[in-house]
Nucleic acid binder design. Structure first.
Lengths: 338, 338
DNA sequence: GTGAAAGCGCTAACAG
DNA sequence: CTGTTAGCGCTTTCAC
């Protein structure tokens, strides 16, 4: 059991050398004689020695750890971004320490604090509901990269985002191209990503001269929120033929609402989401969506963190990635006017 | 920037006391005079002091951290278990350190090693493909609780599992009750969870005198694997009316395969999954499934870990939870015999 | 090459 | 109540 693990001293004793030499040998320094190295490695192996990470990061003053705050784990979208992050972090020989705040700001603060207490060397924040003050505060202690929220800026903060306004407009424009006019919107609630997509929707509608058809109900990026909001929209205006929904997860909810309202998708009603989440293509239901390059965003974020760790004076970046239209099973030409 | 955070010494100096007293005050000991406490807390606050987690866990010889290994983050099922885990871990004032192995055994070993190097006080392993040797090795260093794999046992290992054999049988029996006879199975590949569910399927078929209709194709717990396996089954025997699929994720894939084979679900073909994953109810597609109480399993696992941390000699448990039939949109009475 | 000594920031006796 | 003294396990000068 926890009969305390062997320490560097045990190895040193067994190999008959000093602990400094063990330290060097373990980390593969070349200033150790072949002979000593062998003895040390063998002793370590026999003892089952492995360095204590806490001691090392204390002495080293670097944790070799990147902290990642995720909104939550239920939306697979975050997992996709995380994959990109992990790939780069691992490549640098670092580890990632993952926490989630479940969209609760207080909880996010606690978790972030815990990461900082652990002396993470960099922070990647992936949460659309993130409190800007939190991020700015964290940025005083280590490099911070924010994914999906370009509006949070400040000293020490970089961002990796899609152009959500443009994506919002493009979703509308694609529906327009399919002949839709009565296009409503399920928004993403009180946060910048949602607000931007909604803005894009509104602008595109106005540009198309369809201001009078602008119709919005608030969702919250969850499946149930999207379902409820879509239901309200369909009740307010049964003539809607197109629905632009703030993200894929709530768009899946909107599909449910559509069926409950006896609208068949896509023949009666076209639905578009955002994100390109991996599980959005299921069964009969393959969601049309504005895809974001999620893994790529994760990689970009991690790369930026390491750039800043390596050269703290390197410039802060504001990466922007491109969202693209991915037509699948929930969109079709507008039904003939009734 | 990282201009080194204030330490306990800085606080002590500023408050005009010794660092031991600061240590006590910070942790809320009552052996500190009201006067000193105030001075210390104020100094700490002014300096923005927060204890260094690495130093603390080194001196304390406890990390107050529970390590969690997850198969991967793309199957929302794991997120649900994790929620239960986190709830309990937080309640104990501990933190969780989360890693994933993406189903790769070598990678799982690395990540597990990293957790142990960090001196986690307990380990919760949630990965159906887990290598038993890995778990047993880890159990020599700290209490280990394995979720979903009752077959991995050993000194220091507890388990929290559903009775997958029974669940497998029950899925079949429910289909039998709906009048199905030609019931095939998409398995979960080379791991015990999958094997158990398959065994349950086989046993139930045999008990029903339907051995000659036993038909199995191997999936791998992924959506695409389920889709491919289901497609093969439908080709091998077009008369199948029921499909028991090893987990929800692959069941969703099976639904796609069914539609591609022009079988309509559930009127032509009933499909059952396992797990009760939150995203299995989407749009027209609400999957019938054998639900496991995922959050509860997570809580049970965490509670067991703390029980073992608190009293190392407390008995190893083998918790078993109940899977229940949740009929939804992908099952229906068997079509009349052609 | 190798070892002795001095910390990293914190906790934990043990005296006062 | 409070300060002193030792470490926790590891890295890192800096002599030899």
């Amino acid at each position: 059991m926890s009969t305390s693990r062997p320490t560097i001293n045990d190895v040193a004793a067994r190999a008959g050398v000093s602990k400094s030499l063990v330290s060097l040998a373990i980390r593969g320094s070349d200033r150790v004689s072949e002979e000593s190295r062998e003895a040390i490695l063998r002793a370590a192996d026999e003892l089952g020695y492995r360095p204590n990470a806490a001691a090392r990061s204390l002495a080293d003053r670097r944790s070799r750890t990147i902290g990642v705050l995720l909104h939550d784990l239920h939306n697979p979208v975050f997992a996709q971004v995380l994959d990109g992050v992990q790939e780069i972090v691992r490549a640098h020989g670092y580890r990632t320490m993952l926490v989630t705040g479940h969209g609760d700001s207080q909880r996010e603060r606690e978790e972030l604090t815990a990461l900082l207490d652990f002396q993470v060397e960099g922070l990647i924040l992936i949460s659309h509901g993130l409190d800007p003050a939190l991020a700015q505060q964290a940025a005083r202690e280590c490099p911070v990269v924010i994914v999906m929220r370009h509006d949070i800026t400040g000293r020490g903060i970089s961002t990796v985002c899609a152009d959500d306004v443009r994506a919002g407009s493009e979703a509308v424009e694609e529906l327009l191209a399919l002949g839709h006019e009565r296009i409503a919107h399920v928004s993403g609630g009180d946060n910048r990503v949602g607000a931007d997509r909604e803005l894009g929707y509104r602008e595109a509608m106005i540009r198309a001269g369809l201001d009078h058809h602008i119709l919005v109900e608030a969702g919250d990026f969850t499946e149930s929120g999207g379902r409820a909001a879509a239901a309200r929209l369909l009740e307010r205006d049964p003539d809607i033929t197109g629905l632009v929904v703030a993200n894929d997860l709530s768009a899946l909810g909107a599909v449910v609402a559509a069926e409950e309202a006896d609208r068949s998708v896509p023949s009666d009603l076209s639905i578009v989401g955002f994100d390109g989440m991996s599980l959005a293509a299921l069964g009969s239901l393959t969601l049309t969506t504005m895809v974001q390059p999620l893994e790529q965003m994760g990689r970009a974020a991690a790369e930026q963190v390491f750039r800043r760790i390596t050269s703290p004076r390197s410039p802060l970046s504001q990466d922007q990635v491109i969202s693209t239209w991915l037509p699948r099973g929930t969109t079709a030409p507008a039904p003939p006017r009734g």
